[in-house]
Nucleic acid binder design. Structure first.
Lengths: 144, 144
DNA sequence: ATAAATACTACTAATTCTATATACTATACA
DNA sequence: TGTATAGTATATAGAATTAGTAGTATTTAT
């Protein structure tokens, strides 16, 4: 399961993507619009900012805006910042690999083999889908 | 992430699959062989039994054995018993659907749309892979 | 300069999930 | 009748998740 943190992160980036050519948007506005607890969202936006996805401006008239083109922000990157691993088993993770405690022969583990396949399928989708894609999916869903 | 519960469940079924034509296998033997905490494994096996995957026999000489052909036990089914949903977002789940609290327009949600795609890709693999497949993957991994 | 708006930081807290243990019961076999 | 085994229910410790509280720092507008 995706954590709420990650879901909120994607939602915020989508909103900011739609807002791309306008002045910075305030946390409270994003929170209200997307029904996200404000203080939780603050933490999330900070993580995204520290990861270089967002630009922030303090003071009156301040807020957040995207620091990259929505086409260049892929769901994989977001998920790896907020949730961590993509794989369903640590021993099948690329970026957060960890040997299973109880495993005796990892190289010949059939379970690992299957979940590497699952990881690759998931990864393919998530690394091909950008914030811009999510936005365009939404508009085509509305018009259909 | 897959819970340890699910991982242990699959491991136990694989061991029992290899043991298919022999007398029932005791919890403690499975636990020892796969390095799974015994009491935790008891619960798991019980769940699998109640779901119809296992046959159990009490008393001396008792134990667990598969109640189905290893070819007919698919990873999806196991996961739905132990972990629950396959989808990464509740609103994209087939068997454990739940509307997102904060969502305003589910039908036009781009995030949901992407994660339905991810779910389908995952589901395809997990519903095509049986315990028998996992076992045969293991032997081909060993010989290669 | 002052006040208002806003992001930033740190700490706390409730709730849920995970992984396991404890204790007891029921059943089968020898 | 004793022993080995599964069955069941409950408890628990720890971690992670999801927030909430309170206060600080910075910028802008007046």
């Amino acid at each position: 399961m995706l954590s709420k943190k990650t879901k909120y992160a994607i939602k915020a980036l989508v909103v900011l993507g739609k807002n791309a050519d306008k002045p910075p948007m305030q946390i409270s506005k994003i929170a209200e619009e997307e029904r996200i607890p404000k203080k939780f969202l603050e933490q999330i936006l900070l993580d995204l900012r520290n990861a270089g996805f967002l630009y922030s401006k303090k003071g009156a008239g301040g807020g957040y805006s995207l620091n990259k083109d929505p086409k260049d922000i892929y769901l994989v990157h977001i998920m790896r910042i907020t949730d961590g691993p993509i794989a369903m088993v640590p021993c099948a993770s690329l970026n957060f690999y960890h040997k299973c405690d109880e495993c005796k022969q990892e190289t010949s583990c059939g379970i690992r083999d299957v979940f590497i396949e699952v990881r690759d399928a998931t990864l393919k989708i998530l690394s091909e889908t950008s914030i811009a894609d999510v936005i365009s999916r939404e508009s085509s869903l509305i018009s259909s």
